[in-house]
Design a protein around this nucleic acid. Sequence first.
DNA 1: TCTGGGGTCCTAGGACCC
DNA 2: TCTGGGGTCCTAGGACCC
Length: 447
Amino acid sequence: MQRDWFALVDCNSFYASCEQLFRPDLQGKPVIVLSNNDGCIVAASPEAKALGLTTGQPLFLVEEIIKANSVTVFSSNYELYGDISRRVVDVLRSFAQQLEVYSIDESFLTLPPLPEDQLKKLALQIRCAVRKLVGVPVCVGIAPTKVLAKLSNRHAKETQLHSAGVFVMPPNPELRLPFLQAIPVEKVWGIAAGLSSRLIKFGIRSAAGLALANTLLIRKLGGVVLQRIALELRGLPCIELDDYPAPRKSILSSRSFGSLVYNLPPLEEAVCSYTSRAAEKLRAQRSVCSAIEVFITTNPYRKNLPQYRNSSIEHLPEPASDTPTLCAAARRALARIWHEGFAYHKAGVILWGILPAAALNLPLFPPAISNRTKRDALMAALDTINRKFGRGTIRIASSGIQQTWQMRRTQRSPRYTTCWEELPIVSAKPYPTHPSRLPSKTLSPPK
DNA sequence: TCTGGGGTCCTAGGACCC
DNA sequence: TCTGGGGTCCTAGGACCC
Protein backbone atom coordinates (compact mmCIF):
# COMPACT_ATOMS: atom_id res chain seq x y z
CA MET A 1 0.00 0.00 0.00
CA GLN A 2 1.29 3.39 -0.88
CA ARG A 3 1.64 5.80 1.98
CA ASP A 4 0.88 9.48 2.23
CA TRP A 5 3.63 11.98 1.77
CA PHE A 6 4.80 14.63 4.18
CA ALA A 7 5.35 18.19 3.08
CA LEU A 8 7.23 20.72 5.16
CA VAL A 9 6.36 24.30 4.30
CA ASP A 10 8.82 26.76 5.82
CA CYS A 11 8.66 30.54 5.45
CA ASN A 12 11.92 32.06 4.25
CA SER A 13 13.62 34.34 6.81
CA PHE A 14 10.16 34.64 8.28
CA TYR A 15 10.41 37.66 10.59
CA ALA A 16 12.44 39.61 8.06
CA SER A 17 9.90 38.72 5.34
CA CYS A 18 7.05 39.97 7.55
CA GLU A 19 8.82 43.31 7.96
CA GLN A 20 9.50 43.57 4.22
CA LEU A 21 5.88 42.77 3.47
CA PHE A 22 4.82 46.19 4.78
CA ARG A 23 7.94 47.95 3.61
CA PRO A 24 8.22 47.18 -0.11
CA ASP A 25 11.11 49.63 -0.21
CA LEU A 26 13.12 47.04 1.73
CA GLN A 27 12.57 44.16 -0.70
CA GLY A 28 15.91 42.85 -1.89
CA LYS A 29 17.76 44.79 0.82
CA PRO A 30 19.55 43.57 3.95
CA VAL A 31 17.09 43.39 6.86
CA ILE A 32 17.55 41.84 10.28
CA VAL A 33 15.19 41.27 13.20
CA LEU A 34 16.38 41.22 16.80
CA SER A 35 15.42 39.06 19.76
CA ASN A 36 13.56 40.47 22.74
CA ASN A 37 15.53 43.23 24.38
CA ASP A 38 17.25 43.92 21.05
CA GLY A 39 19.96 41.44 22.03
CA CYS A 40 20.64 38.95 19.23
CA ILE A 41 19.76 38.51 15.59
CA VAL A 42 16.84 36.11 15.22
CA ALA A 43 16.15 36.54 11.50
CA ALA A 44 18.10 37.85 8.54
CA SER A 45 17.01 38.42 4.94
CA PRO A 46 19.14 36.63 2.30
CA GLU A 47 20.90 39.93 1.56
CA ALA A 48 21.78 40.30 5.26
CA LYS A 49 22.97 36.68 5.39
CA ALA A 50 25.22 37.41 2.44
CA LEU A 51 26.92 40.06 4.58
CA GLY A 52 27.72 37.43 7.20
CA LEU A 53 24.85 38.24 9.55
CA THR A 54 23.36 35.08 11.03
CA THR A 55 20.80 34.06 13.59
CA GLY A 56 22.17 34.03 17.11
CA GLN A 57 24.81 36.73 16.72
CA PRO A 58 24.77 39.36 19.46
CA LEU A 59 23.94 42.73 17.95
CA PHE A 60 26.85 44.61 19.52
CA LEU A 61 29.36 42.33 17.78
CA VAL A 62 28.06 43.17 14.30
CA GLU A 63 27.34 46.90 14.63
CA GLU A 64 30.05 47.77 12.12
CA ILE A 65 28.70 45.48 9.40
CA ILE A 66 25.26 46.98 9.98
CA LYS A 67 26.46 50.57 9.67
CA ALA A 68 28.77 49.96 6.73
CA ASN A 69 26.04 48.25 4.69
CA SER A 70 22.97 50.25 5.76
CA VAL A 71 21.27 47.17 7.13
CA THR A 72 17.74 47.88 8.33
CA VAL A 73 17.26 46.67 11.90
CA PHE A 74 13.93 45.80 13.53
CA SER A 75 13.07 44.88 17.10
CA SER A 76 10.87 41.81 17.21
CA ASN A 77 7.17 42.42 16.67
CA TYR A 78 5.45 39.19 17.65
CA GLU A 79 1.97 40.65 17.26
CA LEU A 80 2.71 41.07 13.57
CA TYR A 81 4.53 37.75 13.02
CA GLY A 82 1.85 35.80 14.87
CA ASP A 83 -0.87 37.29 12.71
CA ILE A 84 0.98 36.68 9.43
CA SER A 85 1.69 33.14 10.59
CA ARG A 86 -2.03 32.47 11.14
CA ARG A 87 -2.76 33.72 7.63
CA VAL A 88 -0.14 31.40 6.12
CA VAL A 89 -1.62 28.44 8.00
CA ASP A 90 -5.10 29.31 6.73
CA VAL A 91 -3.83 29.07 3.14
CA LEU A 92 -1.97 25.81 3.81
CA ARG A 93 -5.06 24.16 5.29
CA SER A 94 -6.77 24.33 1.93
CA PHE A 95 -4.06 22.06 0.47
CA ALA A 96 -3.56 19.57 3.29
CA GLN A 97 -5.26 16.37 4.33
CA GLN A 98 -3.88 16.98 7.81
CA LEU A 99 -1.77 19.85 9.06
CA GLU A 100 0.57 20.30 12.01
CA VAL A 101 1.64 23.81 12.94
CA TYR A 102 5.19 22.99 13.98
CA SER A 103 6.41 26.50 14.76
CA ILE A 104 5.56 30.09 13.95
CA ASP A 105 7.09 29.69 10.47
CA GLU A 106 6.82 25.96 9.69
CA SER A 107 3.99 23.53 9.09
CA PHE A 108 3.91 19.86 8.20
CA LEU A 109 1.17 18.73 5.80
CA THR A 110 0.19 15.28 4.66
CA LEU A 111 -0.41 14.87 0.94
CA PRO A 112 -2.00 11.93 -0.88
CA PRO A 113 0.20 9.29 -2.58
CA LEU A 114 0.58 11.04 -5.93
CA PRO A 115 3.28 10.49 -8.58
CA GLU A 116 6.42 12.58 -8.17
CA ASP A 117 5.62 15.08 -10.93
CA GLN A 118 2.18 15.77 -9.51
CA LEU A 119 3.62 16.30 -6.05
CA LYS A 120 6.00 18.82 -7.48
CA LYS A 121 3.16 20.61 -9.21
CA LEU A 122 1.21 20.71 -5.95
CA ALA A 123 4.24 22.09 -4.10
CA LEU A 124 4.51 24.90 -6.64
CA GLN A 125 0.82 25.67 -6.21
CA ILE A 126 1.25 25.88 -2.43
CA ARG A 127 4.19 28.22 -2.79
CA CYS A 128 2.37 30.47 -5.25
CA ALA A 129 -0.80 30.57 -3.16
CA VAL A 130 1.00 31.70 -0.01
CA ARG A 131 2.94 34.30 -1.95
CA LYS A 132 -0.18 35.64 -3.61
CA LEU A 133 -2.62 35.52 -0.69
CA VAL A 134 -0.32 36.45 2.19
CA GLY A 135 2.79 37.83 0.56
CA VAL A 136 5.64 35.95 2.22
CA PRO A 137 7.97 33.55 0.37
CA VAL A 138 7.99 29.88 1.42
CA CYS A 139 9.88 26.75 0.39
CA VAL A 140 8.26 23.34 0.17
CA GLY A 141 10.01 20.02 0.79
CA ILE A 142 8.18 16.75 0.18
CA ALA A 143 9.25 13.26 1.28
CA PRO A 144 7.94 9.98 2.70
CA THR A 145 8.85 10.89 6.31
CA LYS A 146 9.08 14.04 8.42
CA VAL A 147 12.86 13.83 8.86
CA LEU A 148 13.30 13.46 5.09
CA ALA A 149 10.82 16.29 4.49
CA LYS A 150 12.99 18.53 6.65
CA LEU A 151 16.02 17.68 4.52
CA SER A 152 13.98 18.08 1.39
CA ASN A 153 12.93 21.56 2.46
CA ARG A 154 16.51 22.47 3.27
CA HIS A 155 17.51 21.38 -0.22
CA ALA A 156 14.68 23.41 -1.75
CA LYS A 157 15.93 26.48 0.11
CA GLU A 158 19.54 26.03 -0.87
CA THR A 159 18.73 25.53 -4.53
CA GLN A 160 15.96 28.10 -4.85
CA LEU A 161 17.38 29.67 -7.98
CA HIS A 162 16.83 26.58 -10.12
CA SER A 163 14.41 24.53 -7.97
CA ALA A 164 11.83 27.33 -7.66
CA GLY A 165 11.84 26.65 -3.92
CA VAL A 166 10.30 23.19 -4.03
CA PHE A 167 11.83 19.72 -3.89
CA VAL A 168 10.39 16.22 -3.87
CA MET A 169 12.59 13.48 -2.41
CA PRO A 170 12.92 10.52 -4.81
CA PRO A 171 10.57 7.74 -3.70
CA ASN A 172 13.20 5.10 -4.51
CA PRO A 173 15.58 4.62 -1.52
CA GLU A 174 18.54 3.92 -3.82
CA LEU A 175 18.03 7.20 -5.63
CA ARG A 176 17.89 8.99 -2.27
CA LEU A 177 21.23 7.63 -1.12
CA PRO A 178 23.54 10.00 -3.03
CA PHE A 179 21.43 12.88 -1.78
CA LEU A 180 21.78 11.73 1.85
CA GLN A 181 25.51 11.17 1.40
CA ALA A 182 25.97 14.87 0.75
CA ILE A 183 24.30 15.91 4.02
CA PRO A 184 26.52 16.18 7.11
CA VAL A 185 24.99 14.24 10.00
CA GLU A 186 24.70 17.35 12.20
CA LYS A 187 22.30 18.90 9.67
CA VAL A 188 19.73 16.17 10.29
CA TRP A 189 16.67 17.22 12.32
CA GLY A 190 17.14 16.11 15.92
CA ILE A 191 20.92 15.86 15.84
CA ALA A 192 22.79 18.68 17.51
CA ALA A 193 26.36 19.13 18.72
CA GLY A 194 26.28 16.48 21.47
CA LEU A 195 24.92 13.63 19.39
CA SER A 196 26.80 14.49 16.23
CA SER A 197 30.20 14.50 17.94
CA ARG A 198 29.46 11.02 19.34
CA LEU A 199 28.32 9.81 15.91
CA ILE A 200 31.39 11.20 14.16
CA LYS A 201 33.63 9.37 16.64
CA PHE A 202 32.07 6.15 15.38
CA GLY A 203 32.56 7.12 11.75
CA ILE A 204 28.97 8.19 11.10
CA ARG A 205 29.43 11.47 9.29
CA SER A 206 26.53 11.83 6.88
CA ALA A 207 22.77 11.34 6.83
CA ALA A 208 23.40 8.28 4.65
CA GLY A 209 25.88 6.94 7.22
CA LEU A 210 23.21 7.22 9.91
CA ALA A 211 20.53 5.63 7.72
CA LEU A 212 22.77 2.59 7.11
CA ALA A 213 24.36 2.28 10.57
CA ASN A 214 24.00 -0.76 12.78
CA THR A 215 20.82 -0.64 14.87
CA LEU A 216 22.49 -1.70 18.13
CA LEU A 217 25.13 0.98 17.73
CA ILE A 218 22.48 3.62 17.04
CA ARG A 219 20.55 2.52 20.10
CA LYS A 220 23.67 2.70 22.22
CA LEU A 221 24.69 6.14 20.99
CA GLY A 222 21.33 7.89 21.06
CA GLY A 223 18.58 5.66 22.42
CA VAL A 224 15.17 5.39 20.87
CA VAL A 225 15.23 9.00 19.71
CA LEU A 226 18.19 8.40 17.41
CA GLN A 227 16.77 5.09 16.27
CA ARG A 228 13.59 6.79 15.14
CA ILE A 229 15.60 9.37 13.21
CA ALA A 230 17.64 6.64 11.50
CA LEU A 231 14.49 4.74 10.48
CA GLU A 232 12.94 7.93 9.15
CA LEU A 233 16.06 8.52 7.06
CA ARG A 234 15.51 5.07 5.55
CA GLY A 235 12.01 6.16 4.58
CA LEU A 236 10.06 4.43 7.36
CA PRO A 237 7.72 6.92 9.07
CA CYS A 238 8.13 6.80 12.88
CA ILE A 239 7.26 10.36 13.81
CA GLU A 240 3.59 11.00 13.32
CA LEU A 241 1.90 14.17 12.31
CA ASP A 242 0.65 15.96 15.41
CA ASP A 243 -2.45 17.74 14.18
CA TYR A 244 -4.18 18.13 17.56
CA PRO A 245 -1.53 19.49 19.89
CA ALA A 246 -2.14 18.52 23.50
CA PRO A 247 -2.46 21.31 26.06
CA ARG A 248 0.89 22.52 27.41
CA LYS A 249 2.30 20.61 30.37
CA SER A 250 4.27 23.60 31.55
CA ILE A 251 3.96 27.28 30.76
CA LEU A 252 6.91 29.61 30.97
CA SER A 253 7.02 33.36 30.85
CA SER A 254 10.32 35.13 31.28
CA ARG A 255 12.24 38.14 30.03
CA SER A 256 15.57 39.80 30.38
CA PHE A 257 15.27 43.32 31.74
CA GLY A 258 15.91 46.45 29.70
CA SER A 259 18.41 47.50 32.38
CA LEU A 260 19.79 45.85 35.50
CA VAL A 261 17.45 45.69 38.50
CA TYR A 262 18.82 46.11 42.05
CA ASN A 263 15.75 46.35 44.28
CA LEU A 264 12.93 44.05 45.26
CA PRO A 265 9.93 46.23 44.25
CA PRO A 266 10.69 46.39 40.52
CA LEU A 267 11.60 42.70 40.57
CA GLU A 268 8.21 41.95 42.14
CA GLU A 269 6.54 44.02 39.44
CA ALA A 270 8.29 42.08 36.71
CA VAL A 271 7.48 38.71 38.30
CA CYS A 272 3.81 39.71 38.67
CA SER A 273 3.75 40.87 35.07
CA TYR A 274 5.20 37.57 33.78
CA THR A 275 2.84 35.65 36.05
CA SER A 276 -0.11 37.54 34.54
CA ARG A 277 1.01 36.56 31.06
CA ALA A 278 1.51 32.91 32.04
CA ALA A 279 -1.90 32.82 33.74
CA GLU A 280 -3.46 34.24 30.58
CA LYS A 281 -1.93 31.42 28.53
CA LEU A 282 -3.09 28.91 31.14
CA ARG A 283 -6.69 30.14 30.96
CA ALA A 284 -6.57 30.24 27.17
CA GLN A 285 -6.07 26.48 27.14
CA ARG A 286 -8.74 26.05 29.86
CA SER A 287 -6.35 24.68 32.43
CA VAL A 288 -5.37 25.24 36.01
CA CYS A 289 -1.95 24.74 37.60
CA SER A 290 -0.85 23.23 40.88
CA ALA A 291 2.42 25.06 41.43
CA ILE A 292 4.39 28.05 40.27
CA GLU A 293 8.16 28.34 40.07
CA VAL A 294 9.96 31.69 40.12
CA PHE A 295 13.55 32.12 39.01
CA ILE A 296 15.87 35.10 39.00
CA THR A 297 19.37 35.46 37.67
CA THR A 298 22.17 37.97 37.28
CA ASN A 299 23.80 38.47 33.89
CA PRO A 300 26.16 35.51 33.32
CA TYR A 301 28.08 37.49 30.68
CA ARG A 302 29.02 40.21 33.17
CA LYS A 303 31.89 38.33 34.79
CA ASN A 304 32.94 41.42 36.77
CA LEU A 305 29.67 41.45 38.74
CA PRO A 306 28.78 39.04 41.57
CA GLN A 307 26.81 36.14 40.13
CA TYR A 308 23.66 34.63 41.60
CA ARG A 309 20.82 32.50 40.32
CA ASN A 310 18.12 30.72 42.19
CA SER A 311 14.60 29.41 41.88
CA SER A 312 11.81 28.41 44.18
CA ILE A 313 8.56 26.52 43.74
CA GLU A 314 5.37 27.46 45.55
CA HIS A 315 2.73 24.76 45.67
CA LEU A 316 -0.84 25.99 45.67
CA PRO A 317 -3.34 24.75 48.27
CA GLU A 318 -5.71 24.04 45.39
CA PRO A 319 -5.16 24.28 41.62
CA ALA A 320 -5.86 27.75 40.26
CA SER A 321 -5.64 29.88 37.15
CA ASP A 322 -6.58 33.34 38.39
CA THR A 323 -3.96 36.05 38.23
CA PRO A 324 -4.25 37.39 41.83
CA THR A 325 -3.80 33.92 43.40
CA LEU A 326 -0.83 33.11 41.18
CA CYS A 327 0.78 36.51 41.70
CA ALA A 328 0.51 36.16 45.47
CA ALA A 329 2.15 32.72 45.26
CA ALA A 330 4.86 34.04 42.95
CA ARG A 331 5.69 36.86 45.37
CA ARG A 332 6.06 34.40 48.24
CA ALA A 333 8.45 32.31 46.14
CA LEU A 334 10.39 35.40 45.08
CA ALA A 335 10.76 36.57 48.69
CA ARG A 336 12.52 33.29 49.51
CA ILE A 337 15.20 33.69 46.86
CA TRP A 338 15.77 37.43 46.56
CA HIS A 339 18.98 38.71 48.08
CA GLU A 340 20.20 42.25 48.24
CA GLY A 341 23.46 43.20 46.60
CA PHE A 342 23.02 41.66 43.16
CA ALA A 343 22.30 43.24 39.80
CA TYR A 344 19.43 41.17 38.43
CA HIS A 345 19.21 40.69 34.72
CA LYS A 346 16.35 38.28 34.14
CA ALA A 347 13.39 36.73 35.91
CA GLY A 348 10.71 34.28 34.97
CA VAL A 349 7.91 32.06 36.14
CA ILE A 350 6.95 28.52 35.18
CA LEU A 351 3.54 27.01 35.84
CA TRP A 352 3.67 23.31 36.75
CA GLY A 353 1.18 20.54 37.45
CA ILE A 354 -1.20 21.68 34.73
CA LEU A 355 -4.65 20.05 34.70
CA PRO A 356 -7.82 20.64 32.71
CA ALA A 357 -9.95 23.16 34.62
CA ALA A 358 -12.92 20.84 34.10
CA ALA A 359 -11.17 18.10 36.09
CA LEU A 360 -11.16 20.16 39.29
CA ASN A 361 -12.71 18.47 42.28
CA LEU A 362 -15.40 20.86 43.37
CA PRO A 363 -16.97 20.71 46.82
CA LEU A 364 -19.97 18.44 47.11
CA PHE A 365 -22.26 21.27 48.21
CA PRO A 366 -20.79 24.45 46.78
CA PRO A 367 -22.21 27.78 47.91
CA ALA A 368 -24.47 29.41 45.34
CA ILE A 369 -21.79 31.90 44.39
CA SER A 370 -18.37 30.67 45.47
CA ASN A 371 -15.19 32.67 45.49
CA ARG A 372 -14.01 30.51 42.62
CA THR A 373 -17.06 31.40 40.54
CA LYS A 374 -16.45 35.08 41.17
CA ARG A 375 -12.75 34.82 40.32
CA ASP A 376 -13.49 32.88 37.14
CA ALA A 377 -15.98 35.52 36.03
CA LEU A 378 -13.52 38.31 36.79
CA MET A 379 -10.72 36.62 34.84
CA ALA A 380 -13.02 35.87 31.91
CA ALA A 381 -13.96 39.56 31.75
CA LEU A 382 -10.32 40.61 32.00
CA ASP A 383 -9.26 38.23 29.22
CA THR A 384 -12.09 39.38 26.96
CA ILE A 385 -11.22 43.03 27.41
CA ASN A 386 -7.51 42.44 26.85
CA ARG A 387 -8.17 40.36 23.75
CA LYS A 388 -10.34 43.09 22.31
CA PHE A 389 -8.36 46.18 23.26
CA GLY A 390 -4.84 44.81 23.42
CA ARG A 391 -2.74 42.94 25.94
CA GLY A 392 -2.31 44.76 29.24
CA THR A 393 -5.29 47.12 28.81
CA ILE A 394 -6.41 45.90 32.24
CA ARG A 395 -3.74 44.48 34.48
CA ILE A 396 -3.03 43.70 38.08
CA ALA A 397 -1.65 46.76 39.89
CA SER A 398 1.27 44.82 41.37
CA SER A 399 2.74 44.44 37.87
CA GLY A 400 3.57 48.14 38.04
CA ILE A 401 2.75 51.32 36.19
CA GLN A 402 6.12 52.67 35.12
CA GLN A 403 7.68 49.24 34.58
CA THR A 404 11.23 50.55 34.54
CA TRP A 405 12.51 47.00 33.97
CA GLN A 406 10.68 46.64 30.63
CA MET A 407 12.73 45.21 27.78
CA ARG A 408 14.09 47.38 25.03
CA ARG A 409 12.30 47.32 21.71
CA THR A 410 13.61 50.49 20.18
CA GLN A 411 13.13 49.54 16.53
CA ARG A 412 9.71 47.91 16.61
CA SER A 413 7.65 48.28 13.47
CA PRO A 414 3.93 49.12 13.69
CA ARG A 415 1.49 46.32 14.46
CA TYR A 416 0.10 46.76 10.96
CA THR A 417 -2.52 44.01 11.10
CA THR A 418 -3.52 43.77 14.74
CA CYS A 419 -3.86 47.32 16.02
CA TRP A 420 -6.32 49.89 14.66
CA GLU A 421 -4.04 52.82 15.45
CA GLU A 422 -1.18 51.26 13.52
CA LEU A 423 -2.87 50.21 10.28
CA PRO A 424 -0.70 50.85 7.23
CA ILE A 425 -1.71 53.80 5.07
CA VAL A 426 -1.62 53.37 1.34
CA SER A 427 -1.39 56.57 -0.64
CA ALA A 428 -2.29 56.65 -4.31
CA LYS A 429 -1.05 59.13 -6.85
CA PRO A 430 -2.59 59.96 -10.24
CA TYR A 431 -1.65 57.25 -12.68
CA PRO A 432 1.19 58.49 -14.92
CA THR A 433 0.70 58.38 -18.64
CA HIS A 434 4.08 56.93 -19.52
CA PRO A 435 5.34 53.62 -18.05
CA SER A 436 8.75 55.11 -17.36
CA ARG A 437 7.10 57.41 -14.85
CA LEU A 438 5.51 54.63 -12.83
CA PRO A 439 5.97 55.48 -9.15
CA SER A 440 7.52 53.03 -6.75
CA LYS A 441 5.04 51.61 -4.28
CA THR A 442 4.27 54.05 -1.52
CA LEU A 443 3.00 51.78 1.20
CA SER A 444 4.31 53.45 4.29
CA PRO A 445 3.98 53.06 8.03
CA PRO A 446 1.75 55.63 9.71
CA LYS A 447 3.49 58.57 11.29
C1' DT B 1 26.94 49.14 27.44
C1' DC B 2 24.99 45.55 24.67
C1' DT B 3 24.39 38.05 24.44
C1' DG B 4 16.19 35.58 23.57
C1' DG B 5 12.15 32.98 24.92
C1' DG B 6 9.30 28.90 25.07
C1' DG B 7 8.72 24.42 24.62
C1' DT B 8 9.14 18.80 24.19
C1' DC B 9 10.82 14.20 25.04
C1' DC B 10 13.78 10.75 27.13
C1' DT B 11 16.49 8.59 30.77
C1' DA B 12 18.21 7.40 35.18
C1' DG B 13 17.49 6.86 39.79
C1' DG B 14 14.85 6.83 43.96
C1' DA B 15 10.57 5.89 46.48
C1' DC B 16 7.10 2.98 46.95
C1' DC B 17 3.96 -0.97 46.25
C1' DC B 18 2.58 -5.89 45.99
C1' DT C 1 18.57 -19.56 58.85
C1' DC C 2 16.51 -18.07 54.82
C1' DT C 3 15.57 -11.49 52.82
C1' DG C 4 12.97 -11.44 45.33
C1' DG C 5 11.36 -9.68 41.46
C1' DG C 6 8.67 -6.75 38.94
C1' DG C 7 6.10 -2.86 38.38
C1' DT C 8 4.62 2.30 38.63
C1' DC C 9 5.23 7.03 39.59
C1' DC C 10 7.82 11.09 40.24
C1' DT C 11 11.66 14.19 39.60
C1' DA C 12 15.86 16.20 37.93
C1' DG C 13 18.72 16.83 34.33
C1' DG C 14 20.12 16.52 29.62
C1' DA C 15 19.42 17.02 24.78
C1' DC C 16 17.05 18.93 21.29
C1' DC C 17 13.81 22.01 18.59
C1' DC C 18 12.44 26.81 16.49
